[in-house]
């Protein structure tokens, strides 16, 4: 979990590729959950690394566990070190580093949420300018929709004849 967020914070994951992280944290509608479920299924099928199934729950739990102070609390660190009798200096550093990483991650996530909110008014702008959107020409059907239609609702000819734009 923290590795994922650290990677995000370290820019090892492109922001554009991490929109689902943001989405799963922002929304809890069935569609959003279905989307993460789909991602998981798809990623498992393709054998690519995945986020854990309860990514969102884990994330929320970890965030809840984080102290609400805005800087590492020396007293808290000391008491944590005391609680673990054998904690060496490097152990304390590890805690500090993991906290730093978490804060960095929260900052980035917060920034992304902010970005999304800032970008929100443009949603309405999209609606207003719908007329100025992509116009489909009279002789063209976007292949992604045609293929999706034919795979779930094949017509009698589509079993044998694919559109010219059918991806090969």
């Amino acid at each position: 979990m923290t590795e994922q967020l650290s990677a995000l914070a370290d820019n090892e994951i492109e922001l554009a590729d991490a929109e689902h992280l943001l989405a799963s944290m922002q929304a809890n509608s069935p569609a959003a959950e279905a989307w993460s479920r789909y991602h998981l299924i798809g990623d498992v099928m393709r054998g690519t690394p995945t986020l854990s199934a309860d990514f969102k729950a884990n994330l929320m739990a970890k965030i809840d566990m984080e102290p609400t102070v805005l800087a590492p609390n020396a007293a808290w660190l000391k008491s944590a070190a005391k609680a673990d009798g054998n904690t060496s200096k490097s152990g304390g550093q590890q805690i500090a580093w993991s906290m730093a990483a978490s804060f960095a991650a929260i900052l980035v996530v917060g920034f992304m949420v902010l970005q999304a909110q800032v970008a929100d008014p443009s949603l309405n702008a999209n609606v207003a300018t719908a007329e100025a959107g992509v116009q489909t020409s009279a002789e063209f059907i976007p292949a992604e929709y045609l293929t999706a239609h034919q795979s779930s609702a094949p017509s009698s000819t589509s079993y044998y004849i694919q559109p010219a734009s059918y991806p090969n």
């Binding site: 999209n126 992509v134 045609l146």
Partner: peptide, 21 residues
């Protein structure tokens, strides 16, 4: 950009518009 428009290719019709967002 949202897609709007209509087309007819062979036996297949296509229509795209926007409802709310």
């Amino acid at each position: 950009k949202p897609r709007t428009g209509r087309s007819l290719v062979g036996n297949t019709s296509f229509y795209a518009n926007v409802a709310g967002n």
